[in-house]
Amino acid sequence: MNALRSLIARDLVLALRAGGGAALALAFFAAVATLVPLGIGPDLKLLARIAAGVLWVAAVLAALLSLDRLFQADFEDGSLDLMALSPLSLEAVALAKIAAHWLSTGLPLTLIAAVLAVAYGLPANGTGALVASLLIGTPAVSAIGGIGAALTLSIRRGGLILPFIVLPLIAPVVIFGSGAVLAVLDGLASGAFLFLAAFSLLAVVLSPFAAAAGVRLNLGS
């Protein structure tokens, strides 16, 4: 546990210090969310309707674009070798890195989304639903994105291929996440939150194994 915690803490510090990329992901998120009304027009009624979809897609893109260095940085300077030789299993290493990514990206994205939702004219119950859906769903984005990061860690220009291979896999998160908000807005009963939570749980539990397999594969070269 101590080793796991220290790895999460170290990755958090690296993400938050200069050049870490967490702040950049948040800025990217805010910039995309600002650009959409510029392209669509200031009609608050329309914006409120599309807010959940736009903010979910922007959050997913921001998270994925900051994921490509998750393993790559440690792979390139040899740190990943030393982690693989440590008493910690690679599955635990992957889990720690996914957790650190969520803490440094997914969680702050959720908080910023609450502010942006107001700018989109989303009513209070919709904003609450959006924040809840992001809180539940973004761990799945970090987890499944972690698989992509592990598989692409040896590709030097892996920045674009990572979102491409991961996006179809996280389509359910976007569907259930934004669907949950729309259902709340329309006053419909839907199982969206339940499905979202189930998917997220499954992703967080299973992804470290696939990610570890990817890392193991790439270290054997």
Binding site: L169, I175, G214
Partner: peptide
């Protein structure tokens, strides 16, 4: 091997994707 891991992850995920799209 890397694309194989992705294919397996996709195989686990495909029923869920299909279900989510049907729900949608």
């Amino acid at each position: 091997r890397a694309s194989g891991i992705l294919a397996i992850v996709g195989a686990v995920n495909l029923p869920i994707i299909h279900f989510s799209v049907r729900w949608w």
